[in-house]
Every structure is written in structure tokens, then in C-alpha cells.
Design a protein around this nucleic acid. Structure first.
Lengths: 349, 349
DNA sequence: TTGTACGCGTTATCAA
DNA sequence: TTGATAACGCGTACAA
């Protein structure tokens, strides 16, 4: 791609120096407010005036090249348009802004190969650090090797084969909790509905479901191998027509819940009377959906913030051992589970 | 903030050259696959081998400084966590990825001053171009001046005092349309509910509402000056208790719709029987909200994509006049307006 | 307190 | 076809 950019307005520190009638370094020092340095106030003012007159803007690119700091952090998430990741991205941006950093946010779509390319791209841009929601891999790969040399915080999921700071929620406990809530309502045939079970968080949620069922001595039924929401939807309909005929579902995420609701509607089944549901991920309208959805709420924005904080701590030179930060989830009890009134049960960490 | 970064893995083009036993430029040319250049295949292979052995990674920062292309575009939107803007950001990222570009996405929170700072920050990072949803200002400001020298595409809203490519939807027509739909249901006392009326899109929606009411010869009632959702909520309750007592609302966005729904619930009013509603912004669960929400759907992802395309066209040197691109909206008719069955009416451009 | 020289990693230009 | 050199804009290290 041939690129045409105007260079007309490329005011440099040199132009400012000339305009102010001082040396280069004086300008640089004024701009950076070098701590142990005293200026004659007059000089400083001359420089500031010149900067204003010329509309000079420091060139971060040159700074990055010269110094060892780009002022950019990389953020690699599953997909930007997902509400959970969107609020996570917001949390990151808030923290970055406080420190005059900017984030480059890119998506993986849960594609390992794309993830590799995105990591490489961000490294080429010399980001100072990385926040990453890595897609699960069986073994260490190039990604691990690349990240070993870069301050990195794993977000939402640990990275196989890489020791680093991380911010997670206890998916397993939350899922077990939500499943036990259904069991508490007297359900005995409860199915797990989800997809993309190579994703770490999904696997954890499956394990949580399995644990709850096992403890209660109930038959377990994971709708496995579904690759996407549409297929999950078909599987749900199949199992609802099968002899097993679940009276309740635990759904791995909002999309799956939506699929189950649609399936129930299609089969003329009432939620929660004929089919009860609990799931993952709260959203703004959940209370107005009928029936109100009982879901595990994850602190998306807080995750982003916390992760960014950990990263900036490292960039500031913090040494200590890697932090393993687990944030609380809440089970927001509404109606789809069979409950009448709304209540909030906080999951212990 | 003192920054500590490892420089251990800083393999440069120079190291590669030495390793391969060739000159700097040969390496550079191999990497960039300079078009009109022939290499002895042996040399090219030597270089490639050396790159692999050393794990060399081009330094985009140095490239940006030397060349006139950073490979980064700036994206300034209202807020990343809003679903509309999130899908817009996704559209941008998809287009950027195709061209080996990365986006820096930052938010303004509808704050003019913050917007200025964000523009400055992105310019400091020498982004090659900018996509911006600018907050309305009465007159030209520093932002306008800054953007005049940078390839810019206005997204969702035009920029006062700046001629540039833009991608919009016809908010006025869509709002008029949605209001007329209510009028068609026989409503005569229809109020406009919204906030942040200094935002361009909100003003357009108000105008659309006003136009529809005027054409029908109906009394207009804009709940003005509400600064945030909470206040809007109070205003809605007030007006529902007032003599005017609207039988229907046109809501400026989803949050406002939510507020109206809550207010109605609180007052024991049935939607749509006692109070009908149409609004702006569709979302995934809208069909499961009871009653189903009748809303104007905006093509968020397509807006992001289109805007990015326009920008990259300019970066490729496209000259012509500025494009003014208006994307279609749809009125998704569900139940909150008073309709029974679902239907989709496409708004003409 | 202020200024000069050098180098960060890359590419454009020119010479070989 | 290849290589040497000079920028790009800034900050560190030193000298004045």
C-alpha cells in the first residue's frame, strides 16, 4: 500500500529551539520537566511560547526508538464486540489513560494461528507490555516464547507454559454453584450446554458442572462437540426430545442461554416450569427478559482494570513473585432458575 | 513512571546482515520484498535463514520514524463498552487487520476536553489516520485544526468546521419514522425522552421526532436538559404523572428505553397498552424482552468497516472529493409500539 | 544552567 | 544486484 502523508506540519523540537532562540536540550528538558533541573523561568516561558506558536507535538515514535518505552500496551482479546470483553477493554483503557498510555486492542476470534500473528504484530510495534486472553493450546508454542521476554498479564485465562501475572475468576466454582442452585430446586436431569470446549473458561465451567452433579450423585450430560451457537441450538432441541429429557440446563454463556430460550419457545416449553436455566454472563437487559435470567455475573471492567494495574506495576519496575488474582463473581438469581424473587448470592473466592 | 524493559532480544537488521554475511540493505530489501528488485536466490535464502536463526522481528517504531507510515490508525469513540461502539470497533479492526494495520482505540465519554487530549495523544503516536466520533461543539476548535492535517473519517457524526469523509446514518429520518409509527397506532400525546442533547445524533433524533409531530399537527413534548439516565428516569415519571400524560414515548437510545420500562413498571403501567415505546439501537436480547422492543437498528459493524475502508483508500492516495456515506437503518417492529407480530421496515436512504 | 555529539533501527539515495 | 551513508526526531552522556 503506497502511503501519502503530508509532512507539512512536522514541527520538531529543533524548530521550537530555533523559534525560542535556545538550544535543543533546553526544549527537551522543558517538555519533559526533568526533575533535578532548574531553568531560568524566562527561558522556560520562551520555550513554552514557541511550542504554542508552532503547535509542536512531541513525537512519540522518536521517543520510543530513542528511549525504551513506547507508551503503548497491547491487548489481545477474543472479540471486541462481546459485551464482556468490551467492558474489559474499557477497564484497560481507563487505567492506561491515567498513565498517558494508549492500548492497541486486537482480537483472536479464538483462533490460535491468528493469536500468534497478533502477538507478532504487537511486538513489531514494540508495545511495552501485553494483556492477553490466550486461546488454549495443549503445549507451549511460539506465543509462549515471544511473551517470555515481554511484561505480560494473562487475563481471564492462564497461558499454558508461561509463568506470569494473571487475573481470573473462579469459573469452576461459579459453575458448580449455579448448577447446585438448580439441584437445590429439585432438578435431577440437568444438562450442560455450551460450545468451543477447547476454551479454558468453558472447560472450567464444564468441570464445575460435573463436580456439582457428581457430588449430588446425578447423571451427567454434557452436550459436547458443538462448534457454534447454531449447532448448540440443534443439540438442545435433540436432547429435549430424547429420553433423557432434561428439566434444566446450565448454559456456558449468554449466547447459549439465548439458544435454549429459543429452543424452548419453539417446542412450546415454558421456562422455568418445563425447563429451568442458569447461565453465565449478566447483561443490562437481563432483568427485563421474561423470565428474568439467573446468571453468573463476571466483573469485566474490574478485570480489565486490575490486569492493567498489574502490568503497569511491572512496567514501573515492581519485582516480587507473579500475582495470581482471582476476582469475585456473583450469582444473580432471577426467575429462569425457578426462583420467584430476585436475590444475589456472592460466590466466595 | 520509570520503565524497565529487557533489551535482551533486540535483534536488529544489522545482526541479521552480519549473520548472513551481507550488507544492511540486502536484508532490508529481502524483508520488504522491494518490487523492482532482483536478488540472487542464494543471497535471499541466506538472509531468510539468518532471520529464522536469530528470530529477527522488524521494528515498526524505527520504520515509522524513518518512513512516513506508522501502521497505526487512531479510533476515537464515545465509549468502548457501549454495544454499538463495540461492534463499530470490531468492524474497524477487521478492516485494519486485512492491511496489517492495528487500531489504537480510545474513548471520549462525550467530554470535549478529553476528546482534545485523546486526539493529541494519538497524534503524538503518529497515527497514519483517524476515525472519530466527535462530540458536538458550537465552533471550530483545536481538534479541527489538528485533524486538518491528518487523513480523517468522521464516524456517526460530522465534525463541525472540518471537511472530511464521513459515514453516518440518517438519524433524523429514522427517528421521524419511528415516531410516525407511533402516530400510526393512534397515539396523540407522544413525548421524546433522551439526554445529552448536545450530542449530534441526539439532536438529529429530536428533530426527527419534532418533524413527525409537526406534520401530524400534534403537540410536541421533549424532555429536555436531562443530563443522564437517572435524571431521565425521574423526568419520565414526572411527565407520566402530569396532565400531559403521554400515551407513548420515543426514546433516544436503549438506556432511555430501559428507564421508561422501569418507570412504567414502577407506576404499574402496562407496555404497550398504557404506554407504548419505540427507540433506538437494537441488541441481541431485544426479542426476549417482554414486550419485545420496537427499535431502530443501526449497522454498527458496517459503519466501522466502511469508515476504515474510506480511510485506507485515502492512505493509498485516493484523491477525489470527500465522501458522505449514509448507511441504511431498519425499524425492527416488535411489540413495545403496540404491534402484534414482528416485521421489518427498511428505512429508505 | 545550557549546549554538542552520538546513537536508537530503519529505509532512500546514491555509488559501485 | 549489492553496499555505504545519511537522514528520521529525540534523549543520554558529557562538556562548557
Amino acid at each position: 500500500m503506497s502511503v501519502v502523508l503530508k509532512r507539512g506540519t512536522a514541527v520538531t523540537i529543533r524548530d521550537v529551539a530555533r523559534e525560542a532562540g535556545v538550544g535543543l536540550m533546553t526544549v527537551s528538558r522543558v517538555i519533559n520537566e526533568v526533575p533535578g533541573h532548574k531553568f531560568s523561568p524566562a527561558t522556560a516561558q520562551k520555550v513554552r511560547d514557541a511550542i504554542d506558536r508552532l503547535g509542536y507535538e512531541p513525537n512519540n515514535v522518536a521517543r520510543s526508538l530513542r528511549g525504551r518505552r513506547s507508551g503503548v500496551i497491547g491487548v489481545i482479546i477474543t472479540g471486541i464486540s462481546d459485551p464482556f470483553w468490551a467492558s474489559c477493554a474499557r477497564g484497560v483503557e481507563l487505567e492506561a489513560r491515567k498513565r498517558n498510555y494508549v492500548p492497541i486492542v486486537v482480537a483472536t476470534d479464538e483462533d490460535c494461528e491468528l493469536e500468534e500473528r497478533q502477538v507478532a504484530a504487537l511486538q513489531a510495534h514494540r508495545v511495552d507490555g501485553m494483556l492477553i486472553a490466550s486461546t488454549y493450546r495443549a503445549k507451549r508454542t511460539a506465543v509462549t516464547k515471544r511473551l517470555a521476554n515481554l511484561p505480560t498479564v494473562a487475563i481471564d485465562r492462564p497461558i499454558v507454559g508461561l509463568k506470569c501475572d494473571c487475573v481470573l475468576v473462579d469459573n469452576l466454582a461459579a459453575a458448580r454453584n449455579a448448577t447446585e442452585h438448580l439441584i437445590g430446586h429439585g432438578h435431577r436431569r440437568i444438562a450442560f450446554a455450551g460450545y468451543a470446549d477447547r476454551v479454558y473458561t468453558v472447560r472450567e465451567r464444564i468441570d464445575g458442572y460435573l463436580e456439582a452433579m457428581e457430588r449430588a450423585g446425578l447423571e451427567r450430560n454434557v452436550l459436547e462437540g458443538a462448534a457454534d451457537p447454531a449447532e448448540t441450538h440443534r443439540r438442545v432441541i435433540d436432547v429435549l426430545k430424547s429420553p433423557f429429557r432434561p428439566t434444566a440446563f446450565f448454559a456456558a454463556n449468554t449466547l447459549v442461554m439465548l439458544g435454549i430460550m429459543q429452543a424452548a419457545q419453539q417446542l412450546g416449553l415454558n421456562v422455568p416450569r418445563d425447563v429451568a436455566i442458569t447461565g453465565f454472563e449478566d447483561f443490562r437487559w437481563a432483568e427485563f427478559v421474561k423470565p428474568g435470567l439467573t446468571v453468573v455475573r463476571q466483573p469485566g471492567e474490574a478485570m480489565g482494570q486490575r490486569a492493567a494495574q498489574l502490568l503497569f506495576d511491572r512496567l514501573s519496575g515492581k519485582q516480587g513473585p507473579f500475582e495470581h488474582c482471582v476476582l469475585d463473581t456473583e450469582l444473580i438469581v432471577r426467575e429462569s432458575c425457578g426462583c420467584g424473587a430476585e436475590a444475589v448470592l456472592r460466590t466466595a473466592v
